[in-house]
Design a protein around this nucleic acid. Sequence first.
DNA 1: TGCAATTTCACCCGAAAGTATGAGTGGAAA
DNA 2: TTTCCACTCATACTTTCGGGTGAAATTGCA
Lengths: 153, 153
Amino acid sequence: MKFILRHKLSILYGISLAVLLLVLKWLEIKFIIYDHSLEIYIGAIALLFTGLGIWLAIKLTKPKVQVVEKEIYIQQNGDFVFNEKAFEKTGMSKRELEVLELMAKGLSNQQIADSLFVSLNTIKTHCSGIFFKLDVKRRTEAVEAARRMGLIP
Amino acid sequence: MKFILRHKLSILYGISLAVLLLVLKWLEIKFIIYDHSLEIYIGAIALLFTGLGIWLAIKLTKPKVQVVEKEIYIQQNGDFVFNEKAFEKTGMSKRELEVLELMAKGLSNQQIADSLFVSLNTIKTHCSGIFFKLDVKRRTEAVEAARRMGLIP
DNA sequence: TGCAATTTCACCCGAAAGTATGAGTGGAAA
DNA sequence: TTTCCACTCATACTTTCGGGTGAAATTGCA
């Protein structure tokens, strides 16, 4: 069933061609026309006008535009205060905090590297430092911990 | 000039018909076919396949997708309230939400699997579903998006 | 100027995450 | 009863992450 739905148009077109051939066969019997050049000629006409129809439809019909509304959720929490004390307690450097913030936004190490114009290896090093200082193992854990400590909103 | 531009399509179609007639005439001379039913038959074929072409084109042309971004503001006042509407809009299942919550706590896929007493592969499948429905690529991104939408605290 | 901390980068390797595809099961709806 | 969907699990593969280690370059401060 899936196959039929997926190839609906191909199948329909195939059927159309089959019908055309049948019509031609019928004509052959009807008029006892054995000159095959007529069949070829009719086929050419059919193709030509199919093309014409497609061209006409494309030119005449207004371009179909499907408007998709994408909702963007924006959180406005002005009540975030950076916990300076907690930050100092971790012993994190400024650069590490920068990386942590980008990490919390969901960026990959490569994206963070590109944002800060440094190499991927550098970001990895910073990550290791962050994980060590926050006493965590994974980036998601780090983000969770940092949020609880008030280092990021 | 204006007239030509305005009636471009009509003119072209007229020309097409004229060409068809000429072709028919040429055939009449060429094959000395005096049976007018053939002309009628060819005309019918032409019309039929023009229609087929139009129908095909209409069916085949994909609507251009235009994404309109709609901003939704959420005010966060201290304590967390679950955004039911946003949740329904994502189309996520209950199970996926469960996985998302554990994910946001910083658990690894294996830990989530152990918590929910299912296999690691199952969690991976759920993760893929979550990422698709939240339109993100990574777990950290998913957590960020879910938090903004008010799905998790 | 010299030292310490920070920042930068590199390489290797294993673990974890994520993709793609297919499939089986049970419950609810049509 | 059939169909649909959520949930489950699997295999195979690619990409990203993170650990370990070492080492330049830079910066800030004594």
